[in-house]
């Protein structure tokens, strides 16, 4: 039997009925604002600008100015050890070098690929894991949810330097506990950080371990927003827990997942500490991510123009990824 549908009403009609229910009598009282004089409007505008100025000024000073400066410097040859006045305009030469066949281009492209792979793997592991752990923490059937939530979040609070030092020892190929434990169950020692085939994945595992608690808390926050009545209705209709997850939980977590994915992408692209502290980009550049490479080129070698071109490319790539994420997830939402 088809459900009865509510007749569509225009916004004007809805507003009118809402006003009528307001209890102002049969004749609805028109909504009106006192007419402002141009002087008042000017004063209002000035006060708005005055209140916004500190925040927007700070943003402009510490975000926009460096960003514009970096974009400008990317078209120059400039040593970071000299003043801006020494920057020499060279057009797109830096960007051409990034795409060229020399070691500049090869190293940049390898770092770009490593960053992309690290980001994809991190997000692909963190987001589903956070939902899974969120469900585990959020459930009320078994005790210990709050303890588990605390344990999971605690990894996020540990300073990265401590995490990096501990994990570098855990991963040690000969003395490391992980390989020793694997040996107990008959698995041969793994190379972890010592091989270009496994080093980046090892850093991803470290990142997932550290970050998943934070994203689990986000997932739990999203889960608490879903009305329990929906699950009750679904159970009455005979929906299995699996179906409830796919048809209720996941769609209603969409905004949370979008936020989590965006934050996870940004965090992953900015990875620096584990690489700087443990692998130094090696072996064979396999963990040389863009932030570390930009630091090496722009600061260690003082090639400010080239480093700026790399930073601009990274920024543009990040913008494209974030816009795509929003577009894909939002479009799917509208289709529903």
């Amino acid at each position: 039997m088809p459900r009865p549908t509510r007749p569509k009403s225009s916004r004007a009609t809805r507003n009118k009925s809402r006003v009528s229910r307001g209890g102002w009598g049969t004749l609805p009282r028109p909504l009106s604002f006192p007419k402002q004089s141009p002087r008042m409007i000017g004063r209002h505008r000035r006060s708005t600008i005055g209140m916004l100025a500190p925040a927007t000024g700070l943003i402009a000073l510490f975000v926009l100015v460096p960003m514009v400066l970096t974009i400008g410097l990317s078209f120059t040859q400039w040593s970071t050890q000299t003043g801006f006045e020494t920057a020499r305009f060279i057009g797109l030469a830096n960007f051409a070098d990034l795409l060229g066949p020399t070691s500049i281009g090869r190293d940049f492209r390898a770092a770009f690929f490593n960053t992309a792979l690290y980001t994809v793997l991190s997000v692909a592991l963190i987001v589903p894991l956070s939902v899974l752990l969120g469900l585990l923490v959020h459930q009320t059937f078994a005790p210990g949810g709050i303890v588990l939530r605390t344990v999971l979040f605690s990894t996020y609070m540990v300073p990265t330097i401590a995490v990096a030092l501990v994990w570098s020892k855990l991963y040690s190929p000969t003395e490391g506990p992980i390989n020793q434990m694997l040996g107990w169950v008959g698995i041969p020692p793994q190379t972890w950080l010592s091989s270009p085939n496994t080093a980046l994945v090892s850093i991803v595992i470290l990142n997932v371990w550290q970050q998943v608690g934070y994203f689990t808390v986000l997932a739990v926050a999203g889960l608490t927003q879903i009305p329990t009545t929906l699950y009750e209705a679904a159970r009455v209709d005979g929906a299995s827990p699996w179906l409830q997850f796919w048809k209720i939980t996941l769609p209603l977590l969409r905004n949370t997942l979008l936020f989590s994915a965006v934050v996870a992408v940004i965090n992953a692209v900015q990875v620096f500490e584990p690489v700087a502290l443990i692998t130094q980009g090696g072996p064979v550049n396999s963990t040389n991510v863009l932030t570390y490479h930009i630091r090496r080129v722009g600061i260690e070698r003082a090639q400010g123009g080239l480093g700026s071109a790399m930073a601009v490319t990274l920024m543009l790539s990040l913008i494209v990824v974030i816009v795509l994420l929003f577009a894909v997830l939002r479009d799917r939402g509208d289709e529903r």
Binding site: S168, P173, T174, L193, S194, I278, T279, Q280, G282
Partner: peptide, 23 residues
């Protein structure tokens, strides 16, 4: 074995550990 050759930021790490431990 290159897998036994890794160094860290302090110029220590597995390459040193392996020589120290007689491997």
């Amino acid at each position: 074995d290159p897998a036994m050759a890794t160094a860290d930021a302090n110029t220590t790490g597995p390459f040193l550990d392996n020589f120290v431990s007689g491997k």
